[in-house]
């Protein structure tokens, strides 16, 4: 009878797995719930990561155009450059003179083949600055700051696209956060029920163990092993599905024409860290669900 004289660690695991088998369908439901909730968490993380990286990529494209008051002389307009450079979050400042602006307009409409300035009789365009923000998240704030400065009468930036993207990220964060929060709550709840059932099934034994002089740690350890095992199983499955799905998407995406427009993150260090977060989250869920049940139902 090898099993009679087991060491404690062997006892912990055998009790945990006995409980998992005894709880049968519920164990399965728990793993599934954890898988679903952590999969959604993973999708949300990947979505936010990709959108953030895309926004970072836009940093080069989104620039602010600030138009100098027509009452300013060219010298006064040029003097504004220093003030702009002194602002926080400014990476680059380019002065565009009225002439340059006219020229570029001319080139743009050169196909029509006539002299724009002559037609308009004078150059109606103002002096302006093109400003690049070091962080695309700052564009809006920076633009507002410049609009408030003396000497500028109008500030343009890629309002539409920037605001839309921020709205999307915000939406993903909130919506994802809500869904993730709810499913995680469900997962913790199910883990708790699982452990509660296991405690109930073994209440006679727990009472006896207490009378014999077992420490709480000895009594609760099998339950922690059970809860954490179920949750980590769920997390591993979620991570595998997410990894497989994303790799597949990555392969398909690079073959399409969208890949240039919206490149997906393919930095595997970053991706693996993301899958690692899922496993850590699983560990935490298992521990939390067990701890709640053990606190509530162990005082036999």
């Amino acid at each position: 009878m090898k099993t009679t004289f087991r060491r404690q660690s062997a006892y912990y695991y055998s009790e945990a797995f006995k409980s998992i088998r005894r709880n049968g369908f519920l164990s399965l439901a728990t793993v599934t719930t954890v898988t679903v909730s952590l999969f959604i968490l993973g999708v949300a993380i990947l979505l936010v990561l990709n959108i953030s990286s895309y926004l970072q990529g836009l940093a080069d494209d989104v620039e602010i155009s600030a138009f100098v008051d027509q009452t300013y002389t060219d010298e006064q307009a040029l003097a504004l450059r220093d003030q702009l450079l002194r602002l926080n979050g400014v990476e680059e400042v380019d002065f565009v003179s009225r002439e340059e602006a006219m020229d570029s307009m001319q080139t743009r409409y050169s196909s029509s083949g006539y002299d724009l300035e002559e037609t308009l009789e004078s150059n109606p365009l103002p002096n302006s600055y093109r400003i690049k923000a070091s962080d695309p998240q700052n564009v809006q704030a920076l633009a507002q700051q410049i609009a408030g400065m003396e000497g500028f009468y109008r500030v343009n930036y890629g309002q539409d696209i920037v605001e839309k993207l921020f709205a999307i990220t915000k939406g993903v964060r909130w919506g994802g956060g809500c869904i993730v929060g709810m499913t995680i709550l469900g997962a913790v709840f199910l883990i708790g029920i699982n452990i509660r059932l296991s405690i109930f099934a073994r209440r006679k034994e727990i009472y006896l163990m207490k009378l014999i002089g077992a420490r709480d740690g000895f009594i609760t350890r099998p339950f922690y092993i059970e809860g954490i095992f179920l949750a980590v199983m769920g997390a591993i499955i979620a991570a595998i599905i997410l990894m497989g799905g994303y790799e597949f998407l990555l392969r398909e995406w690079t073959n399409t024409s969208y890949a240039m427009l919206f490149p997906l993150i393919s930095d595997h260090n970053l991706l693996f860290r993301c899958y690692g977060i899922l496993l850590a989250a699983g560990l935490l869920l298992g521990w939390l669900g067990t701890a709640i049940s053990v606190r509530r139902f162990m005082d036999v």
């Binding site: 009679t4 004289f5 087991r6 060491r7 404690q8 006892y11 014999i212 002089g213 077992a214 000895f218």
Partner: peptide, 19 residues
């Protein structure tokens, strides 16, 4: 045997001593 050994395992005795 298991019922009796249980009381000793609970307090952390080694499997050799228990036996």
């Amino acid at each position: 045997e298991e019922n009796i050994a249980f009381a000793m395992m609970v307090v952390g005795a080694s499997s050799r001593d228990i036996k």
